[in-house]
């Protein structure tokens, strides 16, 4: 998994790349959580993530809940068709902020 982070005002945009599974979740958390802890709104761009399993979905849930606790917002953007299917299978499309 590779990533890039861009900053604009109080919003950080995280671009993740590759396949997110159990082996990659700690890396993803290490990128996302400090931004939320710093009070940033986070846009998570998943356009280049072609595979995500239940571990990756857990990172989305954890990040979403952490943002709510901190009074910020996590928005998941440009989800690929294959990852959207997994989000919908988990019945999270109404819970997570998807754009």
């Amino acid at each position: 998994m590779t990533y890039k982070v861009t900053e604009e005002g109080d919003t950080s945009t995280v671009f993740l790349d590759g396949e997110i599974d159990m082996d990659k979740t700690e890396g993803a958390k290490e990128i996302i959580f400090p931004l939320i802890d710093a009070g940033k709104n986070v846009n998570l761009n998943l356009s280049n993530v072609q595979y995500m399993d239940s571990s990756g979905i857990s990172v989305l849930i954890e990040s979403h809940q952490k943002a709510l606790e901190k009074g910020t917002k996590l928005v998941i953007k440009d989800v690929s068709k294959s990852v959207l299917k997994v989000i919908m299978m988990a019945k999270l499309e109404q819970i997570l902020n998807l754009e």
Binding site: S54, S55, I57, S58, I61, E62, Q65, A90, I95
Partner: peptide, 11 residues
């Protein structure tokens, strides 16, 4: 009950 974990078997 939305929380991290417990989805693998569901899938």
């Amino acid at each position: 009950n939305v929380k991290p974990g417990g989805l693998g078997t569901f899938f």
